[in-house]
Amino acid sequence: MAIPLHKRRKVADFDPVRDGKTVTQFCKELGISRQTYHNIKSRIAQKCRAGIVPDSTAPKNPIKKFDEADKIAVVHARQELMEQGLDYGPWSIYYFLFDTSGPDSTPSRSTIASWLHELGFVDANARKRPRSSYKRFARDLVGELWQIDGLVYRLFDHAHTHVTIYQIIDDASRFDVGTTAFALPENGTDARAVLAAAFADYGKPQEILSDNGDAFATYHRGFLSATETWLASQGVLAIAGFAPTTQGKDERSHRTLTQFLDARHPVSLAEVNTYLAEYRQVYNERRRHQSLLVGKMHITPRQAFDTFPKAPSPQHPLVGLPANRGHVVELPSG
């Protein structure tokens, strides 16, 4: 219960010696507790007479009021992101408005999600696991592990030509270190060409994670692929995953990449590679990654790649690799 201002003034002016009353008698006559009396006196000692007036009870961060125009802006932002072939969920819309309109005009992610649900833009998916059940795993250092995977993409030409896109993602920062399309089906020669270009641009990682296809890793079958042998000569260890979730980061990136290309309808291999260069710029430099949360804001893969601690790059070739559980394959020297 707030103490009236006239009582607070009496407390400020009260002097036990001058008025000939004890604090207890004064508080009883005024109808306040001794604790309230001492609280007011303490405020006055700190703020002088200005301490008589109580502080405002208004919230420090009042709830922002949004109108129909803000809902329309959210819908337009979602449509623009869709047309650009970018993700258009609540977080993507939030950061799009944050960057274009500023923080003061941007509703919260939960408000945006509520509006999308209210307007019927959310597809119910009972099979989708809640985010709280996810367990995130990633390497701590940039360059400690890269993931490579091949994606078959169909062009928008009359023949529906298939091309193979190789995508390489740094595990810690989610930075796309190399994405290139080739005309041939998945093979080791093209995979090594993409890896070599990434090594030249960003240095060598300590490990490369791939699936167990012939183009990448075959050590579990008792022999080494040409890609594994070449990586070992570069000092990079090739490892393979046997569960679908092992390549989860690359697989999720494939969806973002395919969505981006589908919005542009490439009809030739040259167009695909042109759009891939544009995609890498958007993905690395502009698109905040929802797995890269620093403080209360998500950051881009480029920011993570530049600021996260880095693993030392391999300097010497590997001299022996396990071809299976029981044998070690010696690599040829020179």
Rank of each mutant, 00 (worst) to 15 (best):
Thr179Tyr: 02
Lys204Leu: 15
Ala226Ile: 10
Arg174Ile: 02
His158Asn: 13
Phe156Gln: 07
Asp201Thr: 14
Gly213Ser: 00
Asp176Ser: 15
Glu228Ile: 12
Gln147Trp: 00
Ile168Met: 11
His160Ser: 12
Phe199Cys: 15
Ala200His: 12
Leu209Asp: 00
Thr179Ser: 14
Thr180Val: 11
Gln147Ser: 06
Thr180Met: 13
Ile148Pro: 04
Ala172Asn: 06
Ala217Gly: 06
Leu151Val: 05
Arg221Gly: 05
Asp176Val: 12
Phe156Tyr: 14
Arg174Asp: 11
Ile208Asp: 01
Val236Cys: 13
His160Glu: 10
Leu155Phe: 11
Trp146Val: 12
Phe216Thr: 01
Phe223Tyr: 13
Gln234Asp: 15
Ala193Lys: 11
Asn187Val: 02
Thr227Leu: 13
Gly188Phe: 06
Ile148Thr: 06
Ser173Asn: 06
Asp171Arg: 01
Leu224Asp: 09
Leu209Ala: 03
Asp190Pro: 04
Asp190Thr: 05
Gly178Cys: 11
Gly213Phe: 10
Gly150Lys: 01
Thr164Glu: 11
Gln167Trp: 01
Val177Tyr: 10
Asp149Asn: 07
Thr229Met: 14
Ile148Arg: 01
Glu207Leu: 13
Thr227Pro: 04
Thr161Pro: 10
Ile208Glu: 01
Tyr166Cys: 08
Thr180Asn: 09
Tyr202Met: 07
Asn212Tyr: 02
Leu224Phe: 13
Thr229His: 14
Val152Asp: 12
Gly188Asn: 13
Thr179Arg: 06
Lys204Ala: 14
Arg221Phe: 04
Thr229Gly: 15
Thr164Gly: 05
Gln234Pro: 10
Gly222Glu: 02
Gln147Met: 10
Ile168Gln: 05
Leu237Cys: 09
Leu145Asn: 06
Ala217Ser: 06
Gly178Ala: 14
His162Ile: 03
Leu184Cys: 06
